[in-house]
Design a binder for these strands. Structure first.
Length: 269
DNA sequence: ACTGGATCCTGATCGC
DNA sequence: TGCGATCAGGATCCAG
């Protein structure tokens, strides 16, 4: 899916449209994504949003009386188009604005979500999230503490939402490469000196990917329909059998926690 | 409390 | 060309 940089790219793309125009109508073309789309969602009709935030990989689209919570799942993308454009296959959810534009949520695999959170309510899925990686709450001391009881692979740990949010399969591999840590290293045995590097690498790779509009492998597009351009800067993800840019060893692929993981056996130890 | 496995779903690709 | 197996950017739920 869209990991944090792709969701942030989507948020930035939506912001000017949702702040400048009222919602006219909401159209649900497919009733159930990961969960059923609640009918309360239609309560935003006729209203103007007061802002859009990102928390973890969730988009929080705020109105005075509550929030539309959206997740892109593995294959979701949001686009802003003219409402006159024909729907495309897998356009499951649509919001028409008074400006004549439409926000369309396209998600072939339907692992995404559109939920409603009333004011004063917090959805369960937003309750137990760890810190945002790009804030100071995510630092070496915190990470060391958060990993202290984890005996599994470091890669699984940094992809766990209670530890830190927003790091998915691509950026986990990339951050571990940048910090020289093997993805199978036992989480609570990684030295503090190396955690310093890891924290820094996670922040760097996410920030750079946001600057490039995210990574497009297949389905993801920015809200204007363009891809993200960070794929050109990937060091290891998807590069099995190719040369490491750093040392010319061959990049390896190994399944860890049921997810493909890529690393350089020479640079990462 | 933490870990591994199964699970939701469509579509692209690969080997036979 | 067709067909089945495998693999995808997520994360929840369950058993152990």
């Amino acid at each position: 899916m869209p990991e944090l940089p792709e969701v942030e790219t989507t948020r930035k793309g939506l912001e000017p449209f949702i702040l400048s125009s009222k919602v006219k109508t909401v159209n649900i073309h497919f009733k159930t994504l990961r969960w059923p789309i609640p009918k309360e969602i239609t309560s935003i009709e006729g209203l103007k949003s007061i802002g859009i935030e990102r928390r973890a990989k969730y988009l929080l689209w705020h109105f005075k009386h509550g929030t539309v919570v959206m997740h892109l799942g593995m294959s979701g993308a949001m686009r802003i188009v003219s409402s006159k454009e024909p729907l495309q296959k897998h356009d499951h959810f649509e919001v028409i604005f008074t400006s004549g534009k439409a926000l369309r949520f396209n998600d072939p695999r339907r692992f995404g979500a559109v939920l409603w959170q009333a004011k004063e309510e917090t959805l369960d899925i937003l309750q137990s999230l760890g810190p945002e990686p790009l804030t100071n709450d995510f630092n070496t001391n915190y990470l060391q503490q958060a990993l202290s009881k984890r005996k599994g692979a470091i890669k699984n740990a940094i992809m766990t939402n209670q530890v830190v949010v927003g790091v998915g399969n691509i950026y986990a591999s990339e951050a571990l490469f940048l910090s020289g840590i093997k993805p199978t290293a036992i989480a609570n045995k990684v030295s503090k000196a190396r955690l310093v590097k890891l924290v820094d690498a996670i922040k760097q790779v996410l920030a750079k990917a946001i600057a490039e509009g995210g990574t497009t492998l297949k389905d993801f597009t920015q809200t204007d329909g363009n891809p993200g351009y960070f794929a050109q800067q990937l060091n290891v993800y998807g590069r099995e059998g190719e040369d490491c840019f750093n040392c010319n060893a061959i990049i390896k692929r190994k399944v860890i926690g049921q997810r493909a993981s890529y690393y350089c056996g020479n640079c990462q130890r």
